[in-house]
């Protein structure tokens, strides 16, 4: 039999069987304990599998990465903060700046467009069609989107027929074509990539914001209108505040997407040429291509530190919401 079928069977049958077996075994164990202790032990025993997996696949690797980040290329010599100093003196600063651009423009772009479409489409009959079309790019993998946009941005020398749609439009408007993907001036290449990501993720923002919009009680909006509020005031004073928890969720997702941007940069701008280098690309190069495990780990730690505030914000907001429930 094909080994893949065996593996599939293992995953589908054996894994649940082990988990169910574990639960039955722990229940058996708990039943041996005294009444008062049962309720205290149970949550911990149930937590154990998740905790073990989390330790093995998240906590230990994180500690290891931090350890590596203070060492040389292959972890054999202590280097202190050398790797961090290298990161900030070399291409690191450039990738940090690029990632800030990604985070700001990707988040603002997807939220503004997503919110506009969600609010406006709410008022028309073909809403689901509009949202479906907007959502489509979301189903495409990053590399596929990159291939599509490579053709969209295609550049030919001025004076010859432009085969890229964007440059064809630009030349038809009487301007000279722009080499979007190789132009480092004004970070045009970076913005060209951010635009692709906005194209990919706006549908996601729209769908989630739109769903949240539908959960706002119409009576509330009616009451405001009866009291004489105009449509802008209704949006600004009622809709927007009620949507803000959802906007926070979408923003968090977009910030993290922006921070870990890799695929578009790798496929479209020669792995970070033309001033498009991002932290994730730099980490990939150092770690996987150059076998510089110390430097690669230091970059990973920087990325981790950058994500921590976003996580903390998210956890606090989550606790707050649980609190009011």
């Amino acid at each position: 039999m094909d080994t893949r079928i065996i593996t599939a069977l293992e995953v589908v049958l054996v894994v649940p069987a082990v988990l169910v077996g574990y639960i039955l075994a722990t229940e058996r164990l708990i039943s041996l304990a005294h009444g008062k202790w049962r309720e205290r032990i149970r949550p911990w025993l149930w937590l154990t599998p998740a905790f073990v997996l989390l330790t093995a696949f998240l906590i230990i690797p994180t500690i290891q990465t931090i350890w590596y980040s203070f060492h040389n290329k292959d972890g054999s010599q202590w280097r202190g903060l050398d790797n961090y100093a290298w990161f900030l003196n070399g291409t690191g600063l450039e990738s940090l700046i690029n990632n800030v651009l990604w985070v700001v423009f990707l988040t603002v772009g997807t939220i503004v467009i997503g919110l506009s479409v969600a609010v406006l489409a709410d008022r028309v009959r073909y809403e689901s069609l509009a949202k479906s079309i907007l959502f489509m790019p979301m189903a495409i993998s990053g590399v596929c989107a990159a291939v599509i946009w490579k053709f969209m941005y295609w550049y030919q020398t001025p004076g010859t027929t432009q085969t890229g749609v964007v440059n064809e439009v630009i030349t038809k408007a009487g301007q000279s074509p722009i080499p979007f993907l190789v132009d480092s001036d004004y970070k045009i290449a970076t913005f060209a990539l951010i635009f692709i990501m906005i194209w990919m993720w706006t549908g996601f923002a729209t769908v989630i914001l739109s769903a949240s919009l539908k959960s706002i009680s119409p009576e509330l909006l009616e009451a405001a209108r009866v009291d004489g509020a105009n449509e802008w005031q209704v949006f600004r004073k009622i809709t927007f505040p009620l949507l803000s928890p959802t906007i926070a969720v979408v923003s968090t997702t977009m910030i993290i997407t922006g921070l870990k941007t890799f695929d578009l940069v790798y496929t479209l701008t020669a792995n970070g040429s033309y001033d498009t280098q991002t932290i994730a690309n730099e980490m990939y190069n150092q770690y996987f291509s150059f076998s510089q495990y110390g430097r690669g780990s230091a970059i990973a730690v920087v990325l981790l530190l950058a994500i921590v505030p976003v996580m903390l914000f998210n956890i606090r907001r989550f606790q707050f919401q649980e609190g009011i429930r």
Partner: peptide, 14 residues
């Protein structure tokens, strides 16, 4: 993804 609970139900035409 984070705090999935905060994401409201999907739109009516999934």
């Amino acid at each position: 993804m984070f705090s999935v609970k905060a994401i409201p139900t999907m739109p009516h035409r999934p």
